[in-house]
């Protein structure tokens, strides 16, 4: 089984749309949406949930009001200002360090694992899919990403899938790192804008740091030819292959507005042809049949 993660550095470059279209083109695969902070793939894949589990990703202090003597020690000690003036725990501010628990003279506080999200295993038209949703304001998305990825990996092995296709998180922080850890290849979807290029450089540095093979696809490449050329020469310089160039196209946006995939709704369009070429290149890179 081969593992491919699609990332972008910057948001809004078309990462999820590209991933979903690749899923429609590939055979015998399983999908994982590791963009758990703002998961979007389900909007295009329309999954039917088969199995759901609760994710407990963080600890939080919980108080027994009956035992509390309102001495205020917890409020004084807390570095996160998570104890309110009426001695309640502010769950959004609490980082679960346990100092109040350890120091409370009346044993009124304890640390508990908090439900911070949900994990789903679903079926879609194209492939089975593992996805998740983090609660608003919840932290520790890196751990949830790891769980989504692990669950998808074990299902892929059980079901003898050829490909695990992962929609990664934006940015360069922990969730992204969790989503690329140990994969066979990383596809970076970028766009020819100044901020796109700046973020591409940062994210490729991260991928390189992990010794992972990276390839790049330029979305909307004809939006700014000059920056596209700059991206190409930058990639050549650091020996990263460009595996696809997708044109700026309203067709792809229109398909998305309808919740459809362009390779299905407009298979004859230029952008659909470019997506098919991209998939051929990728399957060659991954040594799987296209």
């Amino acid at each position: 089984m081969k593992k491919l993660t699609v990332i972008s550095g910057k948001g809004g470059t078309g990462k999820t749309t590209v991933t979903a279209n690749l899923a429609a083109l590939a055979d015998n695969l399983i999908l994982a949406d590791c963009d758990v902070d703002a998961p979007n793939m389900h909007l295009l894949m329309k999954p039917e949930v088969i199995e759901a589990e609760v994710f407990k990703g963080a600890k939080v202090a919980v108080k027994d009001q009956l035992k509390c003597i309102e001495c205020g020690l917890c409020r004084e000690l807390c570095n996160f200002k998570a104890i309110t003036s009426d001695f309640k725990v502010d769950e959004i501010r609490c980082e679960g360090c346990g100092l109040c628990v350890a120091k409370c003279p009346s044993d009124a506080l304890k640390l508990e694992l908090e439900e911070t999200g949900d994990l789903y295993y679903s079926q879609t038209k194209f492939a089975p899919m593992v996805h998740a949703k983090l609660k608003i304001g919840a932290e520790n998305s890196g751990k949830l990403v790891s769980q989504v990825k692990e669950k998808a990996e074990s299902l892929a092995q059980q079901q003898e899938k050829e490909l695990l296709l992962i929609d990664g998180s934006p940015g360069i922080g922990c969730p992204v790192i969790a989503s690329i850890n140990g994969v066979d290849s990383v596809l970076v979807v970028t766009e020819p804008t100044k901020s796109g290029l700046a973020d591409l450089k940062r994210v490729l540095k991260t991928v390189k740091y992990f010794n992972l093979p990276a390839v790049v696809a330029i979305n909307k490449y004809d939006l700014n030819q000059e920056i596209s050329l700059e991206i190409e020469s930058f990639c050549r310089q650091i020996q990263v292959k460009i595996v696809g160039k997708l044109p700026f196209s309203k067709v792809i946006v229109e398909a998305m507005q309808q919740g459809e995939l362009v390779v299905e709704s407009a298979p004859e369009s230029k952008v659909a042809a470019a997506l098919k070429e991209l998939w051929q290149e990728l399957s060659y890179e991954l040594r799987i049949k296209s």
């Binding site: 890196g142 751990k143 850890n181």
Partner: peptide, 8 residues
């Protein structure tokens, strides 16, 4: 063997 994921 890998670069971890900051544990966060």
């Amino acid at each position: 063997t890998n670069n971890g994921h900051a544990g966060m």
